[in-house]
């Protein structure tokens, strides 16, 4: 079972993702509410996949992504974005994010893409 770390400041998104993932045989091994916590949790739980929100307080997702890639260049980080964040997403992708989801997303699509990782 693949383990996932969810980094998102919105409790709603964390719950949504968690339910969605757990329903589909992923194990959510940790949750974090901002980039800094996300990095800490990443080191701590070493998840297979990280879902990373972009807009967060304290440290945004793209910065956190870069730090995680520094720690583990092969880290699989999926950005959670929304329309209107193209430039941030681009930066994330160039910095090593394996992919991104655009809110609102569909369950099948998310699962299918995560399973392929």
């Amino acid at each position: 079972m693949k383990t996932v770390l969810i980094v998102d400041d919105a409790a709603f998104m964390r719950v949504t993702l968690k339910t969605l993932l757990e329903r589909n045989n992923f194990k959510v091994s940790g949750e974090a509410v901002n980039g800094i916590e996300g990095i800490k949790k990443y080191i701590e739980v070493k998840p297979d996949i990280v879902t990373m929100d972009i807009t967060m307080p304290e440290m945004d997702g793209v910065t956190a992504l870069k730090e995680i890639i520094k720690i583990n260049p092969n880290a699989k980080v999926i950005m959670i974005s929304a329309m209107g964040q193209e430039s941030m997403v681009k930066e994330a992708v160039l910095s090593g994010a394996v992919g991104f989801l655009v809110k609102p997303f569909k369950e099948e699509a998310v699962i299918k893409s995560l399973e392929n990782l």
């Binding site: 974005s81 193209e86 997403v89 992708v93 991104f100 655009v102 569909k106 893409s113």
Partner: peptide, 18 residues
Amino acid sequence: FEDDCKMENIRAIAVIQN
């Protein structure tokens, strides 16, 4: 890409990056 996955061009950048 999947229909409705949005920001296809940036997904393309991701592919190149990969």
